[in-house]
């Protein structure tokens, strides 16, 4: 069956089984490999993307429910790693293996877009993804740092001009 949606600002139409999760459409049909598979049952958050700016676990969202939806993936957060959350993550050298980090960043991007200055309790409540390597201390620090860098509209930066991105990082 064919389904149309918007991914990172681009309209796409895919011809896939209706129960195929968005995760696998992204990874294996659209070749966007940044969104990761960890559990397939909405437990780990490695597959987190934004649905209209809200973080969702794409392994558990059948493509049939995505008709006409606007999705942003890690690849769409910024063209070159300049989103404040991505910057903070690099500055603080958050990753160990790095496998969970795209999902963590997507949740963090939405958090700092909604809350100018998230508290530790806000972070505990929002950042529920698993990091098997245990980088939580640095994730927490990086969320605070990203907020200090000015947060950013969660899905805005895709297709943003260099100027806008510069703005976002100031």
């Amino acid at each position: 069956m064919s389904f149309s949606l918007k991914v990172n600002g681009k309209s796409v139409t895919v011809d896939v089984p209706p129960d195929m999760p968005l995760l696998w459409v992204l990874r294996d049909v659209l070749d966007l490999k940044g969104t990761k598979y960890g559990c397939g049952i909405a437990q780990c958050g490695a597959c987190t993307v934004h649905l209209k700016g809200v973080p969702v676990r794409s392994c558990s969202m059948p493509i049939s429910s995505m008709q006409g939806m606007e999705i942003t993936t890690i690849e769409g957060l910024s063209a070159d790693g300049t989103h404040p959350v991505q910057q903070a993550w690099q500055e603080i050298d958050v990753p160990q293996c790095g496998y969970c980090q795209a999902g963590q960043i997507m949740v963090a991007a939405s958090l700092v877009a909604q809350k100018k200055n998230p508290s530790d309790a806000d972070i505990d409540a929002a950042m529920t993804n698993i990091c098997r390597c245990g980088t939580y201390n640095r994730i927490r620090k990086a969320v605070h740092r990203a907020a200090a860098l000015g947060g950013a509209p969660a899905t805005k930066a895709h297709g943003a001009t260099d100027d806008e991105q510069m703005e976002a990082t100031r």
Partner: peptide, 11 residues
């Protein structure tokens, strides 16, 4: 920072 950090955070 790890040499792959940028590639990791950009997916």
């Amino acid at each position: 920072p790890q040499v792959d950090d940028k590639r990791i955070v950009t997916g």
